[in-house]
Amino acid sequence: MKTQKMIRVTAEKCLACKSCEMACAVAHSETKSLFTAIKEEPLPMARIQVEGDNEFCLPIQCRHCEDAPCVKVCPTKAIYKPTPQSPVIMNKEVCIGCKWCILVCPFGVIQLDRSGKTVTRCDLCLERTEKGEEPACVDACPTGALEFMPLDEIAKKKREKALSDYRAGVEI
């Protein structure tokens, strides 16, 4: 079985350029093009936010939790996880705008959308990943702070790093 891919963030590489925010808004716009997206009404929204100050910053977006509080709490099942491998997605049609998900999300990555009647959240760029592309934020990141990779690969890389650190005598 192919393991699930997720977005890995390397905090040291983030320069807070906010290219991910902009690419996210464009990817979730009607026209999918920067020059026209900025003229749409309502304006498209980013699902990723760079938080932090000049000392430390981090792009924060939905972690697509396995045991997701937003899925559990949603009274209309608007937010759901179709299969164990798939990201947490939502069906705007059935959302009643109760905002419980916003309250329970431990990362604060669910926002009210511009209409104020429903919420908006990361869908891991399903439209793009189905075509074999990377999520827009990952594609836009100029420093490689955001990467889209299978979980087992992430773990493997960590083990390799731990090994080389151990060899070099770095305290873990």
Partner: peptide, 8 residues
Amino acid sequence: PQCGYGML
């Protein structure tokens, strides 16, 4: 993709 802020 090139920087959106720069392009705009």
